[in-house]
Design a protein around this nucleic acid. Sequence first.
DNA 1: TCTGGGGTCCTAGGACCC
DNA 2: TCTGGGGTCCTAGGACCC
Length: 460
Amino acid sequence: MRSLPSIIHLDMDAFFAAVEQAAKPSLRGKPVIVGGLGGRGVVSTASYEARKFGVHSAMPMAQARRLCPNAAFLSGRFEAYRQVSDTVMGLLRELSPLVQPLSLDEAFVDLEAGPYGPALAEADHETGERLVLALAEDLRADIQRRTGLTGSVGAAGSKLMAKIASEQAKPDGLVMIEPGQERDVLGPMPVRALPGIGPATEQVLRRAGLNTVADLAETGESELVQLLGRAHGAGVYQMSIGLDDRPVVADQDAKSVSVEDTFEVDLADRERVLREVEVLAARCVRRLRAAGRSGRTVVLKVRRFDFSTLTRSETLRGPTDDDAVIIETARRLAAQVDITGGVRLLGVGVAQLADYTQEDLFAQALREEAAEHAETEAEEAEEEPEAAGPRRWMPGQDVHHAELGPGWVQGSGVGRVTVRFETPWSGPGRIRTFAVDDRALEPARPLPLRGDAGPEEAGA
DNA sequence: TCTGGGGTCCTAGGACCC
DNA sequence: TCTGGGGTCCTAGGACCC
């Protein structure tokens, strides 16, 4: 807790949808919904225009289509979101080296640790607060100029209050909560406003007659610990009286890596389940190795037809990034689970991560065994391109046409794909339809939105 | 056409050890 | 001569966040 509101929290407004509107002029001012487009998809982000129809994050896509049938429905373009996120995080790092990203579109910044720290330390209260407000407004303007997007900023004396403030600032706003005002601001809020209180905790509290944050503060720590358990109860009590000492900490290493897939139709037979587990484990290892890490614990996740979820894990003697070991372990775990009734989701993860790989004899043995089958695998690999089949065009996807230039996929079906030819800096573009296997049409990298550094090719 | 994907942290019981 | 008390590791599950 500090006497100056020198912790800020930035939250980009409707981030994924806003990136799409910035990249696709024809979608500006229109409802845009980004998420899983399959039968079992959910909404990742809805633009403000779509929210007016009641569409929100985590809503099943089928429901979103009923509520807002005229929206543009797009699958995510994470490479583009990462590019814009890098630009925004770069702007934050100009304010302080102490930047703590919470996701692609959200971060805390500790201004006292940065170039304005000394000025803040010397300033009297009023001057200091004016400086924070000026820095925050400049930041918002810079983000707007560099990306065309809006972000909301909260400034306060703690992470808790900065996050509450940015929530109040949405959309496209700035709110400062002066140190000393914490309890007045929090008191009337519903308990759900506190981070860490979700639907389950809300229910427990409601049954105990606790509805507002002021109710929690009056109840006291010991009773909250009774209701919620030691760590959660104590944490919720501290928050309820506006206390939060957590420091802003720069980027931390991931503690686990996992991949999972929900299937369009539940998997019913064991062989298919085992095959999918192998594919997932291989994908998981690729990500693990790309991050230069290895892990000791392999986790298998299974969601059954009735949405009940179970995990099975096995801890190895030492960390590994060996595909054969991790795939075999995941397979072994999968062979043990009851799949009666069907499986809707499978996941494979690796935890207990280390920065190095410790070769063990088991990995060695498996590698030797794998070498024996090398010939067979090579044959399978050669079959791969043929098995890939017709190209899949995803709504929202960037494409490039040999004559017509850059555009994006508006939709596809019955052997056709519809493309709109426009760029972030063009006006709304025209639509053309092609055969899905038209050789002039190719998938493309996302284009940079404005002055932000895009892919190397774009700069050259 | 009910319910994604990638994470974090906490709890609780049993094994095992001193 | 009915039998403690921690600590740590592993496993499973659950709440929560974006």
